[in-house]
């Protein structure tokens, strides 16, 4: 059935003409299936040809699934939506979802020490709801609200904390182990750049506008 052979080649030509990698792979798979049909309907099907076509098509189908998964629209639940609006608007929803997947959601009652003074917390956190106070030597020096980070200064400098963070009311938060975060950001440089922008803005708010030359 020569028609299958011609159809396969038309599909291959079409795949070479498109620039979108997903469509290129879809058309290539369709071409491969058409080729398979052609060889299976031939009087003496070539097993070598069938084998290699199956290899190509399997690789393409795995990549199609991966691309399709990456392109699906991102739907955030209401808590994540609130956090996104409060702190992460410079990230794309996909980047934000990736970041959230590496973090841990927690609820903390009032008077919980989230970060101890004089330690390497090994975690960075952001408040989703509620307030926390920053205390240095027992003295309250700042208040943190939804969308604000804690532990990010130690994360950036690698130094020990010089203040503690304690919840002032029931708090919902997301935290990341710094090692997990580093691994994630190492795999996704674009996310690293976007998170730096977020942290830079948070620091600018906390440290005030009086910034000299570094």
């Amino acid at each position: 059935m020569e028609i299958w052979f011609h159809l396969a080649n038309v599909l291959y030509v079409a795949s070479y003409l498109v620039t979108d990698i997903l469509w290129l792979r879809v058309l290539a798979v369709a071409g491969g299936l058409s080729s398979l049909t052609w060889t299976l309907t031939a009087p003496t099907p070539s097993l070598t040809f069938i084998g290699w076509t199956l290899v190509y098509n399997t690789i393409n189908m795995v990549q199609i699934a991966r691309l399709w998964h990456e392109r699906r629209p991102v739907r955030l639940d209401s808590a994540a939506q609130v956090l996104y609006a409060a702190a992460f608007r410079t990230l794309t929803p996909r980047e934000f979802q990736r970041l959230l997947a590496a973090g841990r959601w927690d609820d903390a009652p009032p008077k919980t020490i989230l970060i101890k003074e004089g330690t390497s917390p090994g975690r960075m956190l952001v408040l989703v709801s509620g307030h926390a106070v920053v205390k240095a030597s027992g003295r309250e020096i700042a208040t943190l609200g939804p969308g604000q980070f804690a532990g990010e200064m130690s994360y950036l400098t690698g130094a020990q904390t010089t203040a503690a963070v304690e919840t002032a009311e029931p708090v919902r938060l997301v935290s990341w182990a710094t090692a997990d975060l580093e691994r994630l950001l190492g795999r996704h440089p674009e996310l690293r750049a976007a998170l730096q922008l977020v942290l830079g803005r948070d620091l600018a708010t906390k440290l005030g506008g009086d910034r000299g030359r570094a």
Binding site: L156, T157, A159, T162, A164, L203, R211, G212, A214
Partner: peptide
């Protein structure tokens, strides 16, 4: 460049955040 930004952020914290580094 992200490494330079990271170092600049760390420097900003060290220079400006005395007494409140968390």
């Amino acid at each position: 460049p992200a490494d330079i930004v990271h170092a600049a952020l760390a420097l900003l914290v060290q220079e400006r955040a005395a007494g409140r580094r968390v």
